[in-house]
Each structure stands twice: as structure tokens, then as C-alpha cells.
């Protein structure tokens, strides 16, 4: 009985500890929800309905580093935002695009950028920490749940579990989010100055090891293809012009992919469902190493040149 009575001290400790942990959780989550830069910031901006440009870009790293949004904005005289997220496949991006399609009223065109690996099957959720501030959103939760039910459930419903999934970067960004909040709480939630674009100043380097290893054969995943087809349909139904764009990548990258023509025809088929199809995989850019950081990614220099080429075409389309 004595032992049972002493349990109340332990219980009190657990309650106090719980209060402390929930407070820390609130502080971190609040900061993370107010991040407006980086991939985490893009997701926040979209789910806070703060981005509604004339031209919206979605995609993975090839788009994030390859579409110079400020330059495109300058050249097209239209608002542009780069909503691409590094390393993220369209299955995971779908909830983001879907949310954007629901609320964006000003937007006229959406570019779906397809890198050479965009149609490949990818398992699991990539960097769930970017989605944690908005995991309470049913659209996000269901999308993540489809990819990794166990992880999505635990991150949403089990207190503090999400912290087993985050890197120290998440805390740093949360701190930045607090700074943004304090600075701009009167103006609301500002966009970042680079408009989602991440310039990469690096000169040519070898391709990442995993990219070159995977490159020999890149089978098309039917499910990913279907997700993209559905997204195109949905965006068009909301009155947006959809541009399916094969992003430029260096010709050495083509040599690494055995079934590139097959992938390309898959992308063409998707392009046929969209309003416009642009293929930059054979553009003159792709022969010059100066414009690339590696076989699959433009560098800052290349993205500036690419922006001028793309802007010309966009100006023609969006007249």
C-alpha cells in the first residue's frame, strides 16, 4: 500500500513533465508553422492560402533549382511562384497541388515540371518533417496515409512521436519561423524574396551516386502516372491552364537512362491531356555543361538562361 501511495509523486511528475513537453511542442510547432522559406515554408504558404500567382510551378529538385521565379516574373511581367519541392514525387505533392487548385482564384497557369525520374515508382514518404506543421489538414494526412499509413498515423495522433522523425534542421527552421512571425506579425505571412526558387551557383560536378546507379533503367510507375493524369484533369476543371514541361537536363543524363524514349512518350501522353506540352530535354541548353551542376540539374547560370527561353514561350501562351 505504501508503494501505491508513493505513486502519486510519480503521477505528479508525469503530469508536470507532460505540461512541459506540450509547451515545448507548441513553441516548436508554432515556429514551424510560420516558416516562409525553404520547402517547409512553401508548404506552409500553400496551406495558409498565401500563394496565388499567375504562374505556379510544381515539381522536384529539377524544378526547384531550375526555375528562376524572380527572373521569370521580370520577363513575363506576371507573378510567379516556384512551389517545387526537392526530392519529392508527385504522389506526395498531390495534396499540395490539390489544395492549391481548391483555393487559387487568381492563378492562370500551372507548370508541372517532369524530371527524368518523375514517373518512377517511389515508396514511402520523403522528409515528412516538411509536412508536420500541416499534418492536421485532412488532405495532407490522407495523402501521407496512402503512402505510409503507420508513419502518418503516429505523427498525427501520438504526442511527440513526430520528433522522432525530424532532423535538427526542423528546430532551426522553427526558430526562423518565430523570427519571421515577430518581424511581420502586422503584415501577415510574407512570401520569401526568391519566390521559392533555390539558386545553385555550383559549376559542373559528377551526378549524385544514387542517381547514376539508378539511371540504367527507369520503369514508369502506373500509379504515379495516374496521379499526374488526375491532377491535370482537376487543375483544368478549375479553369487553370496546365503546362506539362519536361525539364532540361544535360545530354549525359540521357545516355544514362536506357529507356528514355519510353519515358518521354509517357510524358508526351500526359502532355496531351494538358493544355500545353513543352519538352526541353532536347533544347540547346542540354549540350552545355556550364549550365548544369550535374547531369540532371541546372545551376544558377543555366536556370537564368532557361528562364529567358521559357518566358518567351509563356508570354506567347498567356497572351
Amino acid at each position: 500500500m505504501k508503494s501505491i501511495k508513493r505513486l502519486k509523486y510519480l503521477l505528479l511528475f508525469v503530469i508536470l513533465l507532460g505540461v512541459l513537453l506540450f509547451s515545448i511542442d507548441w513553441i516548436i510547432s508554432f515556429g514551424a508553422r510560420h516558416v516562409n522559406v525553404s520547402d517547409l515554408g512553401k508548404i506552409n504558404l500553400i496551406f495558409n492560402h498565401r500563394v496565388d500567382p499567375d504562374i505556379m510551378i510544381f515539381g522536384a529538385s529539377d524544378a526547384e533549382w531550375g526555375f528562376d521565379a524572380p527572373e521569370l516574373q521580370r520577363l513575363t511581367h506576371r507573378t510567379v511562384y516556384n512551389g517545387a519541392i526537392d526530392g519529392t514525387h508527385y504522389r506526395q505533392l498531390a495534396c499540395l497541388i490539390d489544395e492549391f487548385a481548391q483555393y487559387a482564384t487568381h492563378n492562370r497557369a500551372v507548370i508541372l515540371s517532369l524530371g527524368p525520374f518523375a514517373l518512377r515508382a517511389r515508396m514511402g514518404v520523403r522528409e515528412i518533417e516538411r509536412y508536420l506543421p500541416v499534418i492536421g489538414n485532412q488532405n495532407v494526412y490522407e495523402s501521407l496515409y496512402d503512402m505510409d499509413a503507420d508513419l502518418a498515423f503516429k505523427c498525427r495522433y501520438i504526442p511527440f512521436y513526430k520528433y522522432t522523425e525530424v532532423s535538427s534542421n526542423y528546430y532551426r527552421q522553427s526558430f526562423e519561423g518565430w523570427k519571421t512571425y515577430i518581424k511581420s506579425r502586422r503584415q501577415g505571412f510574407p512570401l520569401d524574396t526568391m519566390l521559392g526558387y533555390v539558386p545553385d551557383p555550383q559549376a559542373w560536378q559528377r551526378a549524385p551516386k544514387n542517381a547514376t546507379n539508378d539511371a540504367s533503367n527507369v520503369p514508369i510507375d502506373k500509379f504515379t502516372y495516374q496521379v499526374l493524369a488526375d491532377l491535370i484533369r482537376e487543375l483544368r476543371s478549375k479553369g487553370k491552364k496546365v503546362i506539362v514541361l519536361v525539364s532540361p537536363f544535360h545530354q549525359s543524363g540521357v545516355a544514362l537512362i536506357k529507356n528514355w524514349e519510353q519515358i518521354r512518350s509517357g510524358m508526351q501522353a500526359l502532355g496531351a491531356m494538358a493544355d500545353y506540352y513543352m519538352d526541353f530535354s532536347t533544347s540547346t541548353l542540354t549540350t552545355q555543361k556550364d549550365y548544369f551542376r550535374n547531369s540532371f540539374h541546372l545551376n544558377a547560370n543555366g536556370s537564368k538562361v532557361f528562364a529567358s527561353i521559357l518566358a518567351e514561350q509563356l508570354n506567347r501562351i498567356l497572351k
Partner: peptide, 18 residues
């Protein structure tokens, strides 16, 4: 002592590698 235990829990949750 109890504060120390709490600190250990906080370190585990927020700084642990899982």
C-alpha cells in the same frame, strides 16, 4: 533530481536519433 529526469526525457524526445 526530478528536473534532471525531465531534462533527460526532453533530450531523448527532441534530440534523439530514432
Amino acid at each position: 533530481r526530478w528536473a534532471g529526469y525531465a531534462l533527460l526525457v526532453i533530450c531523448i524526445i527532441f534530440m534523439g536519433v530514432f
